[in-house]
Design a protein around this nucleic acid. Structure first.
Length: 199
DNA sequence: AAACTTTACAACCGCGGCCGT
DNA sequence: TACGGCCGCGGTTGTAAAGTT
């Protein structure tokens, strides 16, 4: 059994102070990301490396977008969740400036509830407990969200402009057949204006 | 105004996978 | 091939803020 990474040293837990944020930011800006395990000592922080990484990635990183999610982002998250399930890092990777933690939190606090209110099971994106595949929920707020009507093939072209196949392996969707039974999705999704979603 | 409840989100924890030895 | 260390991920918890009674 692996020991917790922070067992060796006395480490601080809980909310980060301004001073800690500044130390971490200065260190990462000077030395770059990586080697999280040794970073706290080098930066003069009484935190474990994982904690530093989380704080940097989710909060301090310069291009992190904070604040409310737009409607286009909401739609994209819902559609991606229907395709990918709880693979938050992959979903977040398609949302510039958003982190997996933020997407996960937003899903759990807002979108899950929204889908439930709409009568959609947030786990499988089906209406109620029927086994419909290929549902089209006619309203999401004032707009429409189309769920995938069937598993995508490797070309991924069922999702028109928003979801296109990637040519390289950096999509994070690495295998042809995922262990969860999902098809090879190989998505290349960008956020466009809501009107371009084709609803 | 106070007490209580709900919501939102930052942070922690444990596990699995990858990589070097 | 086996082992150990590290990183990243997803689930869960803690708590401050907002809302309600």
């Amino acid at each position: 059994m692996r020991k917790p990474c922070c067992e060796k040293r006395k480490t601080k837990k809980g909310a980060w102070s301004k001073q800690e944020d500044e130390k971490l930011t200065q260190y990462v800006e000077k030395n770059g990301e990586g080697i999280w395990r040794s970073l706290p000592l080098a930066a003069g922080l009484l935190r474990c490396g994982k904690s530093c990484r989380l704080r940097w990635v989710n909060y301090l990183r310069p291009n992190v977008k904070r604040g409310n999610f737009g409607e286009d982002e909401e739609d994209l998250i819902i559609r991606l969740h229907a395709l990918l399930g709880n693979r938050w890092s992959l979903i977040a990777g398609r949302l510039p400036g958003r982190t997996d933690n933020e997407v996960k939190n937003y899903w759990n606090t807002h979108l899950r509830r929204k889908l439930i209110q709409m009568g959609v099971d947030p786990n499988n994106h089906r209406i109620g407990h029927t086994h419909n595949i290929g549902l089209t929920k006619s309203s999401f707020g004032s707009r429409q969200v189309n769920y995938p009507s069937e598993p995508v093939d490797s070309q991924g072209d069922k999702y028109s402009d928003q979801i296109k196949p990637l040519s390289d392996s950096t999509s994070g969707l690495e295998s042809n057949t995922s262990c969860s039974g999902l098809p090879d999705l190989n998505l290349d999704i960008t956020i466009g204006p809501p009107s371009s979603f084709g609803y």
